[in-house]
Design a protein around this nucleic acid. Sequence first.
DNA 1: AAATTTTCTGCAAACGATTGCAAAAACTAT
DNA 2: ATAGTTTTTGCAATCGTTTGCAGAAAATTT
Lengths: 362, 362
Amino acid sequence: MKAILANLAYYLKRIVMHKEFQVADSRVTLRDIAREVGVHPSTISRALNPATREMVTAEIAERTLAAAERLGYRPNTFAQSLKTNRSYTVGVLVPDLTNPVFPPIIKGIDRTLEEAGYTVVVANSDNQPDREQMCLERMQERRVDGLILATARLEDPTIERCLREKLPFVLVNRTTAKNDIPSVVADETAGIKMLVQHLTDLGHRRIAMVSGPHHSSTGLWRFEAYVSALRDHGLEFAPELATQSDTFTEEDGQLAAARLLQSGHDFTAIIAGNDMIALGCLSALKNAGLKCPDDISLAGFNDMRFIDRIDPPLTTIRIPLEEMGSYAARMLLGDLNDDPSSPQTIRIVPRLMVRSSTGPAK
Amino acid sequence: MKAILANLAYYLKRIVMHKEFQVADSRVTLRDIAREVGVHPSTISRALNPATREMVTAEIAERTLAAAERLGYRPNTFAQSLKTNRSYTVGVLVPDLTNPVFPPIIKGIDRTLEEAGYTVVVANSDNQPDREQMCLERMQERRVDGLILATARLEDPTIERCLREKLPFVLVNRTTAKNDIPSVVADETAGIKMLVQHLTDLGHRRIAMVSGPHHSSTGLWRFEAYVSALRDHGLEFAPELATQSDTFTEEDGQLAAARLLQSGHDFTAIIAGNDMIALGCLSALKNAGLKCPDDISLAGFNDMRFIDRIDPPLTTIRIPLEEMGSYAARMLLGDLNDDPSSPQTIRIVPRLMVRSSTGPAK
DNA sequence: AAATTTTCTGCAAACGATTGCAAAAACTAT
DNA sequence: ATAGTTTTTGCAATCGTTTGCAGAAAATTT
């Protein structure tokens, strides 16, 4: 008796490390249904799974489905996943959930994967590479069946890791320097060409660019397209008119635009690497006492929500973001691959949205 | 031999129903570590779990942790969850992920729950009640340990269901008519009082309201606060100056404001039920050839992202949305309850943000 | 009717982790 | 050295589902 009390006291010292709340408990199992229907649980399992339902008689299938409904049976997904080694979960990694570009992409992904029986888990890296690694680790702990990454850099350790560990993944919005990675991106080149065309049509000959960071495809490739499109219009690329924002945020965009304005170089228009950078450019213009588009025209990229409501409504390149997400999900599911051994890139065709942030050159 | 071939042919008829892609397979188990360390797997389990680590010697714990790291061990969460009946997942249900109010709330929730060892799964109901039920069902299939609902109506079948099934949940942003539901909401009354005070200080005596739908607390309670605050200022509530938007969207807000303008009743200011409705009111004012704030002043609620960038920058009530999310998560974890049997409501103190959409009454 | 073939069903093992309990080992008191 | 107490560890069962295989039952062929 004394040993029993001592043992109890010993184990009561255990400390619960996780903060935990009371969990609802509903436990109808295959066994319960089997008792009702009068067959073995393995037969119930086969009857409930559409893929194996033909292996049981129609009568047993019918009675099984009725009993399952009556008893409120809900499969235990832990047990299923333990046996099948599949979670039917897909991880989506975004750099910043509060950036309006990403919610519609996620929505498109979610819609498509939901139809295929998957659940989406979203993680937010806050544009921090070490946080990115942590997010990936957490997702692997959850045994996600695949990944959709909106965080890609041209050189990206996360992608290297996914390749090394043979994790199925697709890139969305940004891609990587490697050519053989499945991706769904905007046609950056076509988009920037439209902007340069639009601005030269307005008479602009000195067109600056505040690009995104060149470690990302959305940064570097849009910049390269700008250089190329200038040449297409017989304009010479002027390096002093190009500057780089450290991130795709208003704050860093404002800093980069301020540097450009302080350099004293002459230009009549700015192409911003994306709409967030464009907002930063607007702030920098205002701080410098310049009016848009009277003094400097401004164009962005993405046509993110509300960009048509700012002052002035922004000329930008529209990307159908939900569709982009949907394509990425379908690519992950293998829908879009004629040849699964040959990864592909889908480039979404953009549209030019002309609003009042661009006007004739002074 | 013929029976074997017949059996094979029979089973080859099975059809895979889910679209599936190749899943990565990494299988280091407790057994592998046990072999390395030379103890039983149950001892490894105890050594790896901080809550039970004191039940093994320091030497075995040390060698276990080293072997786990060297072998790249990752617990099988399916097996853990099957045994413990816990998923360490929390479901968050929002009406519209692309509404800028929700991403920061989700961010706050995610940050807090992540620290407590939980993963967040977000579902999007698209403001459709039947989709809401489907989302809830999906989350229950995943055996979420708890829920945070941003979708509450004053009378809400989803909440009834959660209560009936004893699912742990917390409401965020909106609450329900029941008094004893754990919720984290803005102090609607204080916020609307500030707006009415601000507008009467500007000389407005005819203040209209385009509220949100009265089936939600954010709709009805903000409206009731408006009525009450008018009285506080010796102004009589004029029913013809109040209209209701069917949803918290630009489109429905615009329709409601247009009805108000077409009614021909005289007013000099509008309080919108939230910032999205305010954007709709702006469109309606523009269509009616009215200028804001020269002809009609306008105020919103939430201070959602970019609302300070529109034309004109909106006067509104700021709610710290990430904090709101964080409070909700902590409430679910039981952090904020002195008395767990007595559910509470946290009302977040708002701030008035005066911008150029409000000016002196004409 | 008997033999053969096809369909259906139960058995048993597996998936990987946790945990109550009892036995073994280690430590302390006499 | 022996007895008593405490700590540590292994055993075995469990969680709920899936699935290969073999035997049983049903259907078809001879």
